[in-house]
Write a protein that binds this DNA or RNA. Structure first.
Length: 496
RNA sequence: GCCAUCAUCGUCUAGCCUGGUCCAGGACACCGCCCUCUCACGGCGGGAACUCGGGUUCGAAUCCCGAUGGUGGUACCA
């Protein structure tokens, strides 16, 4: 709790609804959320939709729902259910703040800190090429900076901010002292016209008006920071503290992209990852608690988060680790909750499961429980437990363990069947069943009995053990499956 | 090109600020063994890294300089 003094912490995330919600947005949100919650501050969500061409309402909705799904709740910002914005500093969509930006653009214009530029894109491109050819940094040459008279008969192209040539220095909470020489920048375009501000300008105005104290964002914004600081100075705004998070990377260390991985948060949701698993994993990308705990809840992260322990280098998105972390979280999620979460996945897979009102409902929980430690996602739970909900299909010869003959296998199964039939239905549980089968396994060998028994119950070479399966299936279904296996062997006998 | 920034096992990282306890610790993944009817879990074990070159120092993963490499930016996108 070191970084703040008396002022109340206010942080924000400012995503653009120009595409599916990126996993990187989720991580930036997480770090902001952690910092805000830990400092007793306010977490603001602002939608940066100044680019009307690319911004879409459906992406905004996805963003809000994605954040809610992850449990990264915001204190101020648009309402996920279409209700009015929350908070005193709204509106929280930049597209609704045009009048505000207009006022500040005019202010800069009047003070002579900004000016209309009449250079066309073609002019600019020519300039740029010339500079590049000369080995110079390609920056705007200030052609319209000191125009006395606007060129006759021409409308301005854009509005530019006069970038003073100074050294801008700031202390980044993650990178430490960072400095830029703005002489290399050239005058920046801040708006296409009075009603169409650009990102760098809108951010400055909004962060100031929303009284943001800490800007926690991706490192790709590091070089925007000096430009924004200069505008803050021109407008008389305070400079917030900055923390630039390292980027999430592809396996080849470039910025994470579709080419290498699923970048959309929704795809992880659809594949059956848990919000807690995702939050844990993306938290680990660039940060980890001092005590080396790697599997943790968000409460734990909240307690142990330290901005100063955030990495400076980017981190490769490693799906294997995500799988591990998610599996660990599934193990600690209460079974009833897991069942509820899994239901849609059963539906999607077309597997008929007992409903909550069904007398048989309890077996669903047992089936799910058997997948813990085996399944890394909810989709895996569903696939792994498929065998409990339909008579399995398999080749008769799979029933024979190693070199055991068909006759011996049949004998073993008949023996097992007799044991099961004599076994009380209300004692169809792992331990009692094992006990009941022990004389038979002692006589014939465990493999000779248990392998075919397990295959007849599961239809698979790899599955939970037969006693566990029977506990889920119950007496009637277990007996039916074993009987069917014996029939299969009898029917197929000639073939062997 | 220019500017910024980064650099410990394949990956995520501890250690670096406050040099010696580090022939570098943990986790994932991988391999082996044990458990075992199979899978998984679990237990035990293994291989695997301080980018390079100088300097400072009795001593450097740790401090300094340089090089190399990576990444980000260099828009009338955000």
């Amino acid at each position: 709790m070191a970084e703040t003094s008396k002022e109340k912490v206010r942080v924000r995330i400012a995503p653009s609804p120009t595409g599916q919600m990126h996993i990187g947005t989720a991580r930036t949100a997480l770090f902001n959320w952690l910092f805000a919650r830990q400092q007793g501050g306010t977490f603001v969500l602002r939608i940066e939709d100044t680019d009307v061409e690319r911004s879409k309402k459906e992406y905004e909705t996805e963003l809000l729902q994605g954040l809610e799904w992850l449990g990264l709740t915001w204190d101020e910002g648009p309402d996920a259910n279409g209700g009015p914005d929350r908070g005193e500093f709204g509106p929280y969509r930049q597209s609704e703040r045009t009048a505000i930006y207009r006022k500040y653009i005019q202010q800069l214009l009047e003070k002579g800190e900004a000016y209309y530029c009449y250079c066309t894109k073609e002019d600019l491109e020519a300039q740029r090429q010339a500079l590049l050819a000369a080995g110079l940094p390609p920056r705007y040459n200030g052609h319209c900076r000191n125009l006395v008279e606007p060129p006759a008969g021409r409308n301005p192209e854009v509005i530019r901010f006069k970038v003073p040539e100074v050294k801008v220095e700031f202390k980044d909470l993650i990178h430490g002292k960072t400095s830029f020489d703005t002489a290399l920048f050239g005058d920046q375009v801040i708006a296409k016209d009075l009603d169409t501000p650009l990102y760098n300008f809108a951010v400055v105005v909004d962060d100031a008006l929303m009284e943001i104290t800490h800007v926690i964002r991706g490192e790709d914004h590091l070089s925007n920071t000096p430009k924004q600081i200069l505008m803050q100075r021109a407008l008389g705004f305070p400079t917030p503290q900055y923390a630039h998070l390292p980027l999430i990377l592809n396996p080849d260390r470039s910025k994470m992209s579709k080419r290498f991985a699923d970048v959309a948060l929704s795809s992880y949701r659809e594949r059956g990852y848990l919000p807690d698993g995702i939050v844990n994993f993306i938290g680990l990308l660039g940060w980890h608690p001092k005590d080396d705990h790697e599997v943790f809840t968000r409460e734990y992260a909240l307690e142990h988060f330290e901005m100063s322990r955030v990495q400076q280098a980017g981190a490769i998105f490693n799906e294997e680790k995500l799988d591990f972390v998610n599996r660990e979280h599934m193990k600690t999620t209460p079974i009833v909750e897991l069942v509820t979460l899994a239901v849609p996945f059963y539906e999607k897979a077309g597997i008929a499961i007992p409903s909550a009102t069904d007398a048989n409902y309890g077996m669903l929980a047992k089936a799910v429980a058997l997948q813990l430690g085996r399944a890394k996602t909810l989709a895996d739970v569903v696939e792994g437990s498929r065998l409990f909900f339909a008579m399995p299909e398999y080749e008769a010869k799979l029933l024979c363990w190693k070199e055991t003959s068909v006759n011996d296998t049949m004998d073993a199964l008949r023996g097992a069947l007799a044991v099961l039939e004599a076994h009380a239905a209300n004692k169809f549980e792992k331990e009692p069943l094992l006990e009941a089968l022990t004389p038979l396994t002692n006589e014939k060998g465990r493999g000779v009995v248990l392998w075919p028994l397990r295959v007849s119950l599961s239809g698979q070479a790899a599955s939970p053990d037969p006693m566990e399966i029977m506990e889920v299936l119950g007496k009637d279904e277990s007996i039916a499956r074993v009987s069917r296996a014996i029939e299969k062997l009898e029917g197929g006998r000639r073939l062997f």
